[in-house]
Design a protein around this nucleic acid. Structure first.
Lengths: 150, 150
DNA sequence: ACCTGAAGTTCCTTGAGGGAACCCCGAAGG
DNA sequence: CCTTCGGGGTTCCCTCAAGGAACTTCAGGT
């Protein structure tokens, strides 16, 4: 965990980091997304310390990103993405795209995405929600919004 | 810093975290993106410890995300995004979109993006690079790729 | 010769991450 | 009824990274 809390900053990036910025959190989300829903599965897959896993899951549940819910009529629980959490998968897909492009090396990407709509192996691209044209680092101006500190 | 190195995992998310997963790194990138390029500017804006800032900048330069380069013909340096780093801004924009939606509260988003192509205030949306249709958590199947461990 | 300002570096303290052992609870087996 | 098993955590200790503040270095300006 970062010692400095980012959540108080007037910045959506900082606030998002307060939710999933701790080490392991994005990987936990990825695992839950792909269907590893139980404590021991996560622990085994990630090799994370049980103590830290407990802390992370607690935090993610508290933030409304995961839901802990019982199964099998005994003290067994599984974790699932909430709607809020499912939208964080966007972030994971963009990380995947960047990692595939810049870090995968000779071997190529470890995982491929097949898009339901077109059936093709593909990746994500960022588009303007308004006009549908590409939207990347150089394509925007930044303006102070209603929630700015000033 | 995470004690466990994620870079060795066969996962582009984990590898990406190895580059920018440390606390502060995404915020440093954001600041450099918006034009805070010098050590003291970054330190003052973020309130980060100078020691940690030195470490983070060093790591980001080593990873090829930032370039350190001299100005003013004396021991003065500024940091700039490389092409590799500029593409990481995609990640920041997605984090912003999510934070704006789920964490901004009453006050609304602290920062707005105006898209050059259409001139409108807008945000990003994820589309399939192949067919252009929306691509989110439920719209894909995952398949093992060439670089998978198996 | 002195001051200033940028860009680090050093040193100390605190607390989060790693690791392994331990605990609790309900079910199933004998 | 007593024991074992397996999921889901807790507890404890150790190490190393983050915070914080003071110190250093180098070049220019006055």
């Amino acid at each position: 965990m970062q010692r400095t809390q980012f959540g108080e900053m007037a910045c959506s990036i900082a606030r998002t980091l307060d939710v999933i910025g701790e080490p392991w959190s994005p990987l936990i989300l990825r695992d839950v997304w792909v269907g590893l829903n139980r404590f021991d599965q996560l622990q085994a897959d990630l090799g994370i310390s049980r103590k830290v896993l407990t802390e992370r899951l607690g935090h993610l549940v508290e933030q409304g990103v995961l839901e802990r819910h019982p199964y099998d009529n005994r003290p067994r629980y599984e974790y699932r993405l909430t709607a809020k959490g499912a939208e964080l998968v966007d972030l994971l897909m963009v990380m995947t795209a960047w990692g595939d492009k810049w870090l995968a090396g000779e071997a190529g990407p470890p995982v491929l995405y097949r898009h339901h709509a077109c059936g093709e192996i593909s990746g994500v691209d960022l588009r303007c929600a308004h006009c549908g044209e590409p939207m990347h680092a150089g394509d925007v101006d930044l303006l102070p919004g209603p929630g700015s500190a000033a």
